[in-house]
Every structure is written in structure tokens, then in C-alpha cells.
């Protein structure tokens, strides 16, 4: 598309690029700097001017991290929690989304609006009674405490409902019914296979959100054996305040897994995000 009256190398275009590149550098620099600090030794970090290029002490710093917190244990805990929540969210949210999109029952519309409304409720504020419930169940210091409450959420239901409503023609569902499929069979054999892109995006969003969650795990997972990686990082940061090199080496290692997951699926992720918000 040719734009009218804009030269190829105008000042406007150049300053636009300068703005873009600046924002990009600002977005990426902290990652680079995290590695710079994490790979230098502490004395290099504390001198002035500070180090600007990666050093050679990364493995030493990493070893110190392993000595101070149960790093791999925490990563495994985070992995278990994120995976369980993701599978559960995908199943229950797509099931509910299918019901809202394609099954006729009384109050369908009103209940769906209610679900959207609940996204506005600051659930975090109910943290004290939630803690009491979990403690009644005997789930303090149990990973179930951070899996069960997150097993299904309004955003996921909304997301799947929008996608299923637009991606699957009613005729397909009716045809299934005429052939004698039960509702669950229709969901499992017709709906699920045709909404794979939406499932993938929701799965990624959920996994990353749960991986990064902090307040609730901090409250219910007190024992070091059940710490997720975020809580372990906080412990590292709080207890060994001086050793920035070690702390940032730990932060770097904790960020890498999620960064890899994101970079591998980034195309799908951003496309899904853009699509989903327009579909509303």
C-alpha cells in the first residue's frame, strides 16, 4: 500500500525508528544485565563503574545458589503446579465454554454475563478466608493448596466460549446429535479437535501465569520443601542481601525455563492474544 505524501527517509520515519529501537533496548536490557551481574563475582558488581560485560563466575554463583536454596526442588514444584493447573484449566474451561457456546439451557446468556462480571472481582482480597479454608482442608504446605483453587477460571471460560462460538458451525453439532452422539462425545470428538489453536494459547497463558504467581503460594506454602521457584527466589533475595551476583544468577536460572517456553511458542502466543481480543 502506497501512502500519500510521505517520503521514504523523512525525519518522522527516522525518529519513529529511534523510538522503537529505544523501547526495544529498554525491554531487553534488564535480561542482559541480569546475566552480566550473575556471571561476575560480587566484588566486580560492587565496584564503580559497574561491570558491563558478562564475566566468568556464572557457575560459581550458580553453585552458591544451589547451596543456599533447594533450586531444582523448587523448579520441579513450580513445574508440577503449573502443569496440573494448565491441564485442569484447559479441560474445565473448554467444557464450560462449549456449554455456553453450543448447548441450549435456561439462563445460558445470563450466567455467561455473570462469568464475565466475576473477572472484575478482586479475588485476592478474600485471601484470609481462603487461607482458613485451605487450612481446614489440611492443605497448608501441600501443593494442592495452589492447584485446586486455580483449577478453572473466568478468563479461560470466556476465552474458550468466544472461540468455540465462532469456530464451530451449529450444523456440525446438530449432525453429531442426529448421529446419536452424547454431548460429551461431541465435545471430545468434534469440539476439542477443532479448537486446538485456542487451547494452545490458553495453555501457554495459564502456564506462565501460574509459574509467576507469588502472593498466594507465599501464604500457603511455608515449608521449604514445597516452595515454588518464585518463593525460593524471594528467600534467596531476602536472606543473602549482600551477594547480588549470586541472587541474579539464581534469578537468571529461574527466568530461563519460562523464557524458552515463550520463545518457542511466541508466534502462536502473540497471534492468539491479538486474535482473541479482537473476537470479543
Amino acid at each position: 500500500m502506497n501512502e500519500v505524501g510521505v517520503k521514504k527517509f523523512s525525519i518522522g520515519r527516522i525518529s519513529t525508528y529511534v523510538f522503537l529501537v529505544t523501547i526495544t533496548i529498554l525491554s531487553l536490557f534488564p535480561f542482559y544485565w541480569m546475566f552480566v551481574i550473575g556471571s561476575n563475582d560480587t566484588s566486580a558488581v560492587n565496584k564503580f563503574p559497574p561491570a558491563f560485560i558478562p564475566g566468568t563466575s556464572f557457575f560459581e554463583n550458580a553453585q552458591k545458589v544451589f547451596d543456599n536454596i533447594k533450586f531444582f526442588n523448587a523448579i520441579i514444584n513450580s513445574f508440577i503446579v503449573s502443569t496440573c493447573v494448565t491441564i485442569s484449566v484447559l479441560f474445565f474451561c473448554s467444557l464450560a465454554g462449549y456449554a455456553f457456546a453450543k448447548i441450549r439451557f435456561k439462563g445460558n446468556k445470563a450466567l455467561f454475563i455473570f462469568v464475565i462480571g466475576t473477572m472484575m472481582v478482586p479475588i485476592q482480597l478474600g485471601i484470609i478466608p481462603s487461607y482458613m479454608i485451605i487450612s481446614k482442608f489440611g492443605w497448608i504446605n501441600d501443593l494442592k493448596a495452589v492447584i485446586v483453587p486455580w483449577a478453572v477460571n473466568a478468563f479461560g471460560v470466556f476465552w474458550m466460549r468466544q472461540y468455540i462460538a465462532s469456530a464451530i458451525p451449529d450444523e456440525l453439532i446438530d449432525a453429531g446429535k442426529i448421529d446419536g452422539c452424547t454431548n460429551f462425545r461431541i465435545y471430545w470428538n468434534i469440539v476439542l479437535p477443532s479448537v486446538r489453536p485456542a487451547i494452545a494459547t490458553l495453555g501457554l497463558i495459564t502456564f506462565m501465569q501460574v509459574w509467576n504467581e507469588f502472593l498466594w503460594p507465599l501464604v500457603v506454602l511455608k515449608n521449604e520443601a514445597v516452595h515454588t521457584i518464585q518463593i525460593a527466589l524471594r528467600t534467596l533475595n531476602g536472606a543473602y542481601y549482600q551477594d547480588f551476583a549470586m541472587i541474579l544468577a539464581g534469578t537468571f536460572m529461574a527466568t530461563i525455563p519460562i523464557l524458552i517456553v515463550f520463545l518457542v511458542f511466541s508466534k502462536q502466543f502473540i497471534a492468539g492474544l491479538t486474535e482473541g481480543s479482537v473476537k470479543t
Partner: peptide, 25 residues
């Protein structure tokens, strides 16, 4: 590039920026 910061955990962000905003070094 501009989206990547969003996938970083708040804890990591706070630690990294704590280092960036350090008073002396």
C-alpha cells in the same frame, strides 16, 4: 521484544530492578 518483559515473574523483575536502582553501585 516489547512483549518479553511480561513473561518475567514479578519477583524476578523486582530483584533485577532492585539491582539497577541500587544507590551506590
Amino acid at each position: 521484544s516489547v512483549f518479553i518483559p511480561n513473561i518475567t515473574s514479578v519477583v524476578a523483575v523486582a530483584i533485577i530492578f532492585g539491582a539497577i536502582f541500587g544507590e551506590n553501585y
